[in-house]
């Protein structure tokens, strides 16, 4: 009898470390949801406010912020995944003696986001290093290429924000993709070559199925981070439109209590979009992995 109960008890105990995490998450989301509905907005009074959804869903400003956030997150994720994967492929071909030196690619991973933002600011800003260097060369000036051309901080391109995200995220993609690539049996490509396959067929049939799951996983994480991040947009981004996180911040802190439900409703919308994104990703990965295991 006791033998039967023991595994069940063990299973329950195994979940114990998760409890604080789950409680915090459920409480946080629940509280945000309540505030988005105009409830529990202030701890000092029991005044109920208007739900925030009507305010944000009827606002063109919100949609501009939302699409701007999606645009920044998509472009920076796409670039980070492409560059990170290419870097991983290049690392795989590197001779062993150069590999230690190549680990420098991990440096952006350990730098705080603020530092990355400042590096981009100093390098790509209107008065940054690149702009000054361009100004110093009269040849470029003769062609009409002034530092303004290289000012990535100017909207609408928001190049600085994208550059900062890519600089920070591409090494993360490399890390995940390279870990999988190291286990890839290069004799597969040798066999394909013996059978007469060209580079494209080898990539499509052999390398791509190996690359895409870690690249997609890294892409999802990078996308969700870029989509909801606050620090880099605060440092490098504009305010017309602003990234959604900045918009939420402004509504929450710089307006009166009646704006808080709208701020919280924005957060709930962000959460819903993130969840939808993750679900679609898992469905795609599960479909691709079905029936296939490594030999």
């Amino acid at each position: 009898m006791s033998n039967r109960r023991a595994p069940c008890r063990c299973r329950v105990l195994a979940f114990l470390p998760l409890v604080p995490f789950v409680l915090l998450m459920v409480a946080g989301i629940g509280y945000t949801g309540m505030q988005s509905l105009g409830l529990l907005v202030s701890t000092r009074s029991s005044v109920a406010y208007e739900p925030g959804y009507a305010a944000i869903l009827g606002s063109a400003w919100f949609y501009r912020s939302l699409f701007y956030s999606l645009y920044i997150a998509s472009v920076s994720t796409g670039l980070a995944v492409i560059l990170g994967t290419l870097l991983a492929l290049a690392l795989r071909r590197l001779p062993d003696r150069l590999f230690t030196a190549a680990l420098v690619y991990k440096v952006p991973l350990i730098l705080p986001h603020v530092v990355i933002g400042l590096i981009v600011l100093l390098a790509f800003g209107g008065r940054g290093l690149i702009a000054r260097a361009v100004d110093a060369i009269s040849f470029w000036a003769a062609l009409g290429l002034t530092h303004r051309v290289f000012d990535l901080l100017s909207p609408p391109g928001s190049g600085a924000l994208i550059a900062a995200y890519v600089f920070k995220s591409a090494p993360f993609v490399t890390l995940l993709v390279y870990a999988v690539l190291r286990r890839f049996d290069t004799r597969q490509t040798e066999t394909a070559r013996m059978l007469g396959a060209g580079a494209f067929l080898r990539f499509r049939c052999l390398l791509f199925p190996v690359l895409w799951p870690p690249a997609a996983t890294a892409g999802v994480i990078v996308f969700l981070f870029s989509f909801g991040a606050f620090d880099l947009p605060f440092l490098l981004g504009g305010s017309r439109p602003a990234m959604l996180a900045i918009d939420v911040f402004n509504r929450y802190w710089y307006r009166d209590l009646s704006a808080r439900p709208a701020a919280m409703a924005s957060l709930i919308v962000m959460l819903a979009i993130s969840l939808a994104f993750v679900i679609v990703y898992f469905l795609l990965v599960r479909r691709q992995r079905r029936g296939v295991r490594h030999v």
């Binding site: 597969q188 066999t191 394909a192 013996m194 052999l206 199925p209 296939v292 030999v295």
Partner: peptide, 17 residues
């Protein structure tokens, strides 16, 4: 011109095909 084809010891089949 692919005159010779080597079959490896552990066959090296393409796992995703």
């Amino acid at each position: 011109g692919n005159e010779a084809v080597l079959v490896f010891q552990d066959y090296v089949l393409f796992p995703f095909l």
